[in-house]
Amino acid sequence: MINKVIELSEQNLYACYQCGKCSAGCPSVKLMDIMPNQVIRYLQIGKPDKVLQCKTIWICASCYTCSVRCPRGIDLTRVMEAIRLIQLRKNIDYIKVREISEDVLVSVPQIALVAEFRKHTA
């Protein structure tokens, strides 16, 4: 699993020394079940299930804050994307499009919808 993530993300996950700077600056961390640095940690110690089942990868908003601050140059945004894709490519959607309410659909901007579908559906 870690190799697949490395291949898709082109990031060296072995470089992470768990300083936590990614998690400390993450705007979405409050809603995450495991922290961004732990995502890498679970991959490093060979527990991919923790990562595949976590909410964190879906909460990540691809804001790149962690990526620009990582002292080891790991683009964690790409790591999150890689893990999401491993799930989505099994044809597992994160959200059920049909359940999105009419209210939401008409109120939010198009870019939000397109982005949401791109990131959260197969």
Binding site: P27, S28, L31, W58, I59, A61, S62, C63, T65, Y94, I95, I100, V104, V108, I111, A112, L113, A115, E116, K119, H120
Partner: peptide
């Protein structure tokens, strides 16, 4: 700082 972006749909 990030505004939460497309999470406005589902989160």
């Amino acid at each position: 700082e990030c505004c939460g972006t497309y999470n406005t749909v589902s989160a």
